[in-house]
Simulated scan of single mutants.
Amino acid sequence: MASKEENKTLGQVYQEEFQPDYYIKRYYSAIDAGNEFCLKNLHQFFEEECGQKKNTVGVAKKVLEVGSGPVPIYVISASHWSNSIVCSDFLEQNREKLIQWLSAGHEEDGTWLSYAHFVAQLESENADKESAFLVLDRVRHSVRSVIPCDVLQSDPLLGSTESPFDIIISVFCLECAVSSPKEYPNAISNVVQLLSPSGHLIMMGGLEGEHYCIRDRKIPRIKLTREMISSALEGVGCTIVTWHELPRHLRPPELPIDYTAMFFCVAKKMC
């Protein structure tokens, strides 16, 4: 007979075990090659997709981040081009942490300054440390709301009227939200239906990994491959237009994660 612990759903495990402060301290205490990989590729995508003009904030693109967690850094580049950004997460504690940061002043920016400075330098050769504060202020002004999200539901935004979106960003989310590889295509489908025709889905995550740790608890994730991602996207009418990988050994070895490489994928909705 299965134990009470074994009968818990993955969602229940997250609700009980995931601690935003620990997660930030453990995985984001210092910028590393993996963070730079994500931020550089996001910057390049938005610069190419949204054009070279630097004073067009908010005129066109509606952006959604699926699975924001308690982390504001993956919408930094988006905030240069859009003031219509929606962040979302399954966990109430993550949403509260992110809302707390969005409504705070510079005294709460310490953890994120190195990330903002890195992006500021991508945007301008003349960026100094003060630019990091300005970039984080820009994020605060660009995020319109932080809402609940469950990618296992056919309506992931749970009744919100925000969709459709021109661009959806999802970082280390979908492969961690599903309990088996069979659920992965459905999660992709649920998210893609929030995209406008010709919209873009940007995903970043880990390949071949089976867990990551929150304190002493191993949080399971599916063993994701490029073939699984390609198949799921093709099944919902999306085509991969950009694919990059970063070998695992370029990240700090002490991070409690077991994937073999990070990936950055941009897919376009063709219908």
Rank of each mutant, 00 (worst) to 15 (best):
M1P: 13
K8W: 06
T9K: 01
Y14Q: 07
Q15C: 04
Y22E: 09
I24S: 07
R26T: 12
Y28M: 02
E36Q: 15
L42I: 08
Q52N: 14
G69C: 03
S77P: 06
W81I: 12
S82W: 07
S84E: 13
V86P: 01
C87D: 12
S88F: 00
D89Y: 01
D89F: 00
L91K: 04
Q93P: 08
N94L: 00
R95F: 00
E96S: 05
Q100P: 05
W101N: 02
A104F: 07
E125I: 11
D128R: 05
K129N: 12
V135L: 11
D137G: 01
D137L: 02
R138M: 01
H141V: 08
R144V: 08
I147K: 05
I147R: 03
P148T: 10
D150C: 02
D150Y: 02
S154R: 14
D155V: 06
P156I: 02
L157F: 10
L158Y: 12
E162K: 10
I167C: 04
I167F: 06
S170W: 09
C173N: 14
L174A: 00
E175I: 03
A177N: 09
P181A: 00
P181F: 04
Y184C: 00
A187L: 03
N190W: 10
Q193I: 08
Q193M: 06
P197R: 08
H200A: 03
E208F: 09
G209Y: 08
E210R: 15
R215S: 12
R217G: 06
T225P: 09
T225C: 00
E227Y: 09
S230Q: 15
S231K: 13
A232K: 03
G235W: 07
V236E: 09
V241P: 07
E245L: 02
R248H: 15
H249P: 04
E254T: 14
D258E: 05
Y259N: 07
M270W: 13
